[in-house]
Amino acid sequence: MDVRQRIGWNLRRLRVAKGLSQERLALEAEIDRSYVGRVERGSENVTVGALEAFASTLEVDVSAFFAELDPGAPRPLALRAGRKPKAH
């Protein structure tokens, strides 16, 4: 796994753990949603500025995106599709 894939895997893992969709992460980090998807797939050379924005939004240190991966770990699950119900 190359560095771009590691960053993407960790970004997805952290995003899902926070319960954020790609769209919500992009909105809060002020980054294009399609860019988030490309970073998660490991097909984008992510910038330091984007990593800082992701880290700030996810409330983690930038180093979390470079964490070693367990080779046997399953891919982070996708969030349930659709909008959250409105709170009454």
Rank of each mutant, 00 (worst) to 15 (best):
I7S: 03
V46K: 07
L58G: 02
L51V: 09
I31P: 01
F65D: 01
R6W: 11
D32V: 04
L77N: 09
A50T: 12
G37F: 01
R6H: 11
Q22W: 01
G49Q: 14
R33E: 09
Q22I: 07
E52G: 13
R6K: 15
V46W: 04
G82P: 06
D2Y: 01
V36R: 00
L69T: 13
G72I: 00
K84L: 14
H88L: 13
E52A: 15
E52F: 15
N45C: 00
E59I: 10
V62F: 04
V39W: 05
L27P: 00
R75Y: 12
A64W: 02
R41M: 10
L79Q: 09
R41S: 10
G8S: 09
K84G: 05
L51P: 05
V62C: 03
V48I: 15
R75T: 11
R15D: 03
N10V: 11
A50I: 05
A64M: 08
A50P: 04
R24M: 08
E52T: 09
A81D: 11
E68G: 06
F65T: 02
R12M: 10
T57A: 09
A29K: 05
Q5P: 00
R15I: 12
T57C: 10
V16E: 04
L11V: 10
Y35A: 10
S63E: 05
E44M: 13
A50Q: 09
R24Q: 14
V16R: 09
L11G: 07
L79M: 05
G42T: 03
K18A: 15
E59K: 11
E44A: 14
R75K: 13
L69Q: 15
A87N: 10
E68Y: 06
R33G: 02
W9E: 06
Y35Q: 08
I31V: 15
S21C: 03
A17L: 09
P76Q: 00
D2C: 11
A73T: 07
R38M: 11
R24G: 00
E23K: 14
I7Y: 02
E23G: 10
A81L: 08
A29R: 07
G42L: 03
V62N: 02
E68W: 10
L58A: 04
R83T: 13
K18H: 12
I31W: 01
S43K: 13
S56R: 15
S63D: 10
L14W: 08
V36W: 01
E30A: 11
S21H: 06
A78P: 02
G72H: 11
R83K: 13
L14E: 08
N10W: 10
L27V: 09
P71G: 05
A53W: 01
E30K: 14
V60K: 02
L20N: 00
E68S: 12
A81S: 09
A26P: 01
R4E: 13
S56P: 00
W9Y: 15
H88C: 04
A64Y: 03
V36G: 02
V60P: 01
S34H: 08
L51N: 06
E68I: 05
M1G: 14
D32Q: 06
F66G: 01
A26E: 06
A17W: 07
E44V: 11
R15W: 04
E23Y: 08
G82V: 10
Y35T: 13
L20Q: 08
K18I: 01
E68V: 11
R41C: 03
R38E: 08
A26F: 04
G82T: 09
A17K: 12
D61A: 06
R15K: 12
A55H: 07
